[in-house]
Design a protein around this nucleic acid. Structure first.
Lengths: 162, 162
DNA sequence: CAAATTAAGGATATATATTGTCCTTAATTA
DNA sequence: TAATTAAGGACAATATATATCCTTAATTTG
């Protein structure tokens, strides 16, 4: 059970986009180069974010992606679910139905005790991610990352968007 | 990010073992047949549980597995971690280190803001699983499952352990 | 003691999922 | 009009999960 590369990439790309000047777009090529990840594969993640209306696109020169909402209106859960899907991390295959003693139809159609707890754990995971907004991440980054690097990043990006 | 079959199997097998009469063992063959799952592959999960000292074994005729501790001393987290491993569901590949602007050594060696939140979500997931004991599952099962089926299960098992 | 039984675990095969690439299309902007 | 871009289909490579087979050594039962 491991969250895959595209989720990590999508989160970082949204963080970068959240610092983008008003009205500007950043293309997949730049997002990929900035993070040192494969452009074509990242593109799939960005398409998922676009379909989920987390980012919006512009075609043609100086096109690319920008956030579709304010950073304080986007939760990490939205981003993760857009890329990974909304299904639970635990998949119950109902092995209790294979029970050789189950010769009659069990009227209890509730999910089994184990699946219920696993799903509750899943909900706890989601709740934490829903509590975190992109704006929170942005603030943390501003606090943690040296000003010099923040400045260089902005220059690097603006030299590719203007 | 999906919890795999062996985890589900391990949880159900521990639940079955928690209802086993004192001093008796249940073999992999029976655990597999009871759940309708492949015996040899289930064996790998049981070996993990054995190494984690969640179950203990006996060889020879009438051998097999039994719980190594009382059901109220075993959490679902222990079982899941024994089989899946203790690593976080989120793996940070440190793509921020690929930043082309990072021409100097960043003295900030803290994990990045995104990884920290993802790990906190992971902790929330683990906390829920740690709160749940095998004895809780056993109680829920006794409440949910029809008495007739519970009785048949016990007969099925005792006909294979005595 | 002898025979049957069992867990442990190595080796290996198969299936499925993930990761990555390439290319075409259509839209859009400069 | 030309350059550029996202969208997305098709496909290839790789990694992981799933499953099976077999050997070994220990242990218990009879």
């Amino acid at each position: 059970m491991i969250l895959k590369g595209p989720v990590e990439w999508g989160l970082h790309c949204c963080a970068v986009l959240s610092g983008l000047p008003e009205g500007q777009y950043l293309a997949t090529r730049e997002l990929a180069e900035f993070h040192g990840i494969p452009k074509e594969y990242l593109s799939k993640a960005m398409q998922s974010l676009s379909q989920a209306s987390i980012v919006e696109t512009s075609l043609g020169p100086r096109g690319g992606y920008r956030l579709a909402k304010a950073p304080d209106q986007i939760t990490l859960l939205e981003i993760v679910e857009a890329i990974e899907g909304k299904h639970s991390t635990f998949i119950c295959t109902e092995i209790r139905k294979n029970n050789p003693c189950l010769t009659f139809t069990n009227p209890d159609s509730k999910p089994c005790a184990i699946a219920r707890v696993m799903w509750e754990a899943d909900e706890a995971w989601r709740a934490r991610l829903q509590r975190e907004r992109l704006s929170d991440i942005l603030e943390t980054v501003k606090r943690d990352v040296p000003g010099e690097l923040l400045r260089k990043n902005q220059e690097w990006i603006s030299s590719r968007t203007q």
